[in-house]
Amino acid sequence: MIFDAGQIAGAVASLAAQIREGVGESKFAIVGIRSRGDEVAERVSALLREAGIEHDNGMLDISLYRDDLSHLEQNPKLQSSEIEFPVDDARVILVDDVLFTGRTIRAALDALTDYGRPRRVELAVLIDRGHRELPIAADYVGISLETERMDHVLVRLKNTDGEDAVELVKRT
């Protein structure tokens, strides 16, 4: 284990603080990417609400927008997306657990824009582990982690997996 519950909580708090500073007075929405991005988003949202900062919330399932469906032996199980606020002209902060190749975010941008035309879209991630394959960067980062391309970063979160922990599995 490389990060425990305390360090994860610290990273979430840091994200909330960065977002608070980034958005200033403007209205915005926090949208988590399933799965686990939604849980990070919930925690960030809760901290922002505690600080009296109101905002909209949503969740995206990006399975139908993945660019590798043809290569999978079985398509991923779909979950519901929940975007109840008007996306047109909204400032949206996408939230995910790990930023790696950037392909999930590419898919999320496509999924989001099928709901409307946001004024601005930003990205917040719990962990940025590098190795991008697309021109995508995060605006808010909880933890920057140096990894090898073939390493696995396993994030476990309480509601999804029963505990808070991050593991780095080295590929030798």
């Binding site: 399932d61 398509n75 099928d114 709901y115």
Partner: peptide
């Protein structure tokens, strides 16, 4: 799995790219 598909019908864009090509 039919549930999330049905939910798409309330969006203005009802199409998704899952079977593109």
């Amino acid at each position: 799995q039919a549930i999330p598909f049905k939910e798409l019908f309330t969006r203005s864009v009802k199409k998704v790219p899952a079977l593109k090509g």
